[in-house]
Simulated assay, not measured.
Amino acid sequence: MTALALAPTEPRARFRDLVAAEWSKLWSLRSTGWSFLLGALAVVAFNAGQAWDHYRYWTSYDAASRAAFVRDGRALWDAFTGNAAMVLILWAAATGAMAVVTEYGSGSIRTSFAAVPARRSLMAAKALVVAVATTGFGGVVAGVSFWSSQAVLSAHGIGLSLGHPGAVRTVAASALLAPVSALVGLALGTLLRSGAASIVASVVLLLVVPAVTSEKRHWSAVLAHLQPERAWQRLLQTGNWEVPYPWTAGGAWLVYATWALVAAGVAILAVGHRDQ
């Protein structure tokens, strides 16, 4: 009677092991550290530069303009400017896209799928890593931007503290704009598998569409309010803002959450329906 030798079966990878592997994979690339550093410097520089501009020309403003600046809390707009938000969106979307596109380009994605047949679990781990890394990045640049911009303005006594109404929301909204954009980039990278195409699509979806929508008509205002970039603008608003079709800060937070969850879901589901 011959005994049959049974090959030992590999234990199924735990999700936390997949997350650890994806985290190591992200930071093993030399370009990752440089990308995070240069992105942070660019975002903070735009914000500090705007604050410096107001500091430098403060004495040339008339009394009414200076009073309005203080009354309306416009120092918060120096804490995170529109130009900085645009750079953050572009950086985060590109980071999210390249997290998956580089693997498709090098062919290493085949090795990953061979090692982990549960593709959706693997992509869920990648999405989580991208979200955590970019959330940390967003928190650092938003916090440093707030501190540096208000420190500059404080030289004229017009800087604000985190205790000022709307300050914490400004920092949080600016920080979370990063993971939302990164997950959109990840989803587009999974669908298109091309770095250039994914970045172009991200620009169109996250920046061009909000730019061409207007709040003067109801249908256009609804479309505008569904965009993350417009949600960020709404969350930075303080006081009474007169707009044709007003909406709430809660609605803006919901837009953030919806885009993040839908983008992650698209990336996770799409990878299970592709050959590689």
Rank of each mutant, 00 (worst) to 15 (best):
W259H: 11
L254N: 06
A270M: 09
H164F: 14
R119A: 14
A252T: 01
R110W: 02
A20I: 02
S181C: 12
A127S: 14
A97E: 05
L4I: 06
S65A: 14
V180L: 06
Y104E: 05
T102C: 08
I158Y: 06
S174G: 11
A211I: 02
W77Q: 13
G33R: 01
A118L: 11
T81A: 10
K216M: 12
P8F: 01
G49F: 11
Q227V: 01
P165E: 10
V200Y: 10
R66S: 05
A175M: 05
L162I: 04
I109Y: 04
Y245G: 11
T9Q: 14
V208P: 07
A114Y: 05
V255L: 13
G166W: 12
G239F: 11
S145N: 04
V200S: 13
V144S: 13
V222W: 15
T258M: 12
A51S: 12
P11I: 07
Y55I: 01
A7P: 01
Q50I: 00
W247M: 03
E229P: 00
V171R: 00
R12L: 07
Q50S: 14
F15Q: 11
A257M: 03
Y256M: 07
A187D: 11
A93M: 09
V87E: 02
R193Q: 15
A187T: 13
A92R: 04
S28P: 00
W58N: 05
Y256N: 03
S106T: 14
L37C: 08
W34Y: 13
W147Y: 10
L254M: 13
H218L: 13
A124G: 14
L191W: 10
V19I: 14
F146N: 01
V243M: 05
H273A: 15
R16M: 04
W77T: 15
V171E: 00
A167S: 12
Y245F: 15
A97M: 03
R14T: 15
S214Y: 04
G33P: 01
A221N: 07
D72W: 02
V44A: 09
A252N: 06
A187M: 09
V255F: 10
H218W: 09
L261Q: 02
Y256D: 05
V168A: 07
V203E: 12
V255W: 08
P228H: 12
W147T: 01
P244N: 13
W52M: 09
A224Y: 08
A63H: 08
A3W: 04
R16E: 08
T111Y: 13
P244Q: 11
W27E: 04
F146Q: 03
G105P: 01
R74D: 15
H54M: 06
L254A: 15
L176P: 01
A167N: 06
S145L: 00
T9M: 12
P210E: 07
A173W: 02
A125S: 08
S214K: 07
Q50V: 03
A260V: 02
G185L: 07
H218F: 14
G73N: 07
L206F: 06
S194K: 05
L186Q: 03
A249H: 15
V204S: 14
K216D: 13
G139A: 07
H164D: 07
G163F: 12
W27M: 04
G139P: 01
V44I: 15
K25M: 08
L37N: 03
V208W: 13
N47S: 10
V43F: 08
